[in-house]
């Protein structure tokens, strides 16, 4: 198995993983989407809301704000407090704004400086003159299996690594026209693919070619994997956490079976 990063920032990751099978990469994809846990606002106590939105609408918006700092907490169900609520499984954030003003995610004040909105520029609501918002929000840790707000990843996907072969091109340039990604160019009496990784394996170039000069296949053992983070954790941590979760499951099964196999 080999890995090569094409892109790696806090918010985006793209890599080629080779020497493996679709089932393996799919499990990683599913784990990144559903098994990674993060903090999100889960309960809101409204003390004053004279804004134009109902309490529950504001609560929904607050829940969708990505929060950092999940590494320091456990989920309520796993907590030693038995679901009562304590400093290990929940954290309080407050909001106190008078209009006229636009309320942004940066206006939330957290009791834990590690648990803050990943982005401060998310508008929550616009308050007009005389309107006020005073609330306490409780954030907890969960996975997207409980609620989509807990999902830390965005646009997670993978595709087969495209492989081209071009033989005896007659220069008709039909494939250059046909390619929706515009990655085929004609030069030196033959077509060339200028950015193979952009290929979506649509095969329109293959269909367009009368001479059957161009073929494209997806390597069934190599994949281009892409994911983004909503800011609640770095992309690297997102990948590590999801693979760790899969490794733990496999390890637990082996251990369970070891007791009587």
């Amino acid at each position: 198995m080999d890995l090569e990063f094409l892109e790696l920032t806090e918010r985006q990751a793209r890599f080629i993983i080779s020497g493996t099978a679709p089932a393996f990469v799919n499990s990683i994809r599913r784990s990144v989407i559903a098994d990674v846990q993060s903090m999100s606002i889960d309960d809101v106590n409204f003390y004053n809301n004279t804004s134009v939105l109902f309490d529950e609408m504001l609560a929904l918006r607050l829940g969708l704000i990505p929060l950092t700092g999940g590494e320091h907490y456990v989920s309520q169900s796993e907590c030693s407090c038995d679901g009562e609520g304590c400093f290990q499984c929940q954290v309080s954030l407050t909001l106190n704004v008078q209009g006229p003003a636009t309320v942004y995610s940066r206006d939330l004040t957290s009791a834990d400086t590690e648990v803050v909105p990943a982005d401060g520029n998310i508008p929550i609501i616009k308050l007009f003159k005389g309107q006020e918002l005073l609330l306490e929000a409780i954030a907890r840790k969960g996975s997207s299996k409980n609620h989509a707000k807990f999902q830390s990843s965005i646009a997670t996907s993978y595709k087969y690594l495209p492989k081209f072969s071009i033989n005896e091109c007659n220069g008709c340039k039909e494939c250059v026209e046909a390619c929706p990604k515009h990655i085929i160019q004609y030069k030196n009496r033959s077509v060339h693919v200028i950015d193979e990784l952009q290929c979506t394996l649509c095969n329109l170039c293959v269909e367009a070619c009368d001479a059957r000069a161009i073929t494209v296949t997806g390597d069934p053992q190599s994949f281009v994997f892409y994911t983004e983070s909503d800011g609640s954790m770095s992309c690297k941590d997102l990948l590590l956490t999801s693979v760790e979760s899969l490794m733990k499951t496999a390890s637990e099964l082996a251990e369970f079976l070891g007791t009587f196999a």
């Binding site: 890995l3 090569e4 890599f15 690297k236 693979v243 490794m247 496999a250």
Partner: peptide
Amino acid sequence: DPLKALRDASLRLKDEFETLLGLIRLKS
């Protein structure tokens, strides 16, 4: 033994995921 086969399969998976973890850390 089918349960032994299942155990071996889980151990292979554990190793593969562990390898991948190392690769992610190294390559990043």
